[in-house]
Write a protein that binds this DNA or RNA. Structure first.
Lengths: 125, 125
DNA sequence: CAGAATCCCCCATGATACTG
DNA sequence: CAGTATCATGGGGGATTCTG
């Protein structure tokens, strides 16, 4: 880790923390998927955000886009080795989240009962 | 990993992806720090966001807050075991980011030269 | 089917000023 | 020093409509 990496690392971190990126990557874990397949699977996502997320992932080299020139068009998205690599790290993070959700929930509960009024002042509370 | 964890995991993930949380956690890696110490170190952060981020971290059991009743007041923030645990996972993620920044940069460059106009249409482009 | 274009809203964040 | 209160804003994200 050298100096000056902060901005770049922050950029990548915020991409991971982005609302949809991780969900898309996890959705592609098993097999390539079409646009509307992804949309149905993630469901809460809008077409606009799915398109934007996929485009960003393709640009970053995490996902490939393959279109046939059939009609109706079919476009397949798949993870690249880089994306698959990220999947592993993200999965560790998710695993940590699952393993520690008890502790976090307990901490919140105790904080909130000790300090009921502060609750809504906290971000994402 | 059971069903229904998605929301909770997503919540924790978005906390990690939050603009300041990771920076604060990393800043506390070596030793406890005071409010303005943190502010000077992170620098770009506003007092408001630092306060909000710290409060959220305390509520989630990642950070402890210890205040002396001196005057002027001194408040120390430190990582809990849970926070220190998260630090490890986050560090893996940061490490991944550092190790793969070359690949990502290359992918972006190639994408952008192949498709110059799309550049500003992409989120966080 | 796979998106692009448009409109709109709201919340996270920033800047500034104030306080115990 | 360690915050809080208030106001302003920008862009992330949703809903809808349109197209190749």
């Amino acid at each position: 880790m050298v100096e000056g990496d902060c901005a770049e690392v922050g950029d990548i971190l915020s991409r991971v923390g982005d609302k949809w990126t991780v969900l898309v990557i996890v959705a592609l874990a098993d097999k390539p998927m079409h646009f509307n397949e992804l949309k149905r699977l993630i469901d809460a996502i809008s077409a606009k955000m799915l398109a934007a997320t996929l485009k960003a992932l393709v640009r970053d080299g995490m996902v490939t886009r393959h279109a046939t020139d059939d009609l109706p068009p079919r476009v397949s998205y798949d993870l690249t080795p880089l994306g698959r690599n990220l999947l592993l790290v993200v999965r560790d993070l998710a695993l940590w989240a699952v393993n520690n959700r008890g502790g976090i929930r307990a901490a919140r509960l105790s904080y909130d009962t000790a300090n009921p009024l502060a609750r809504r002042l906290i971000k994402a509370g």
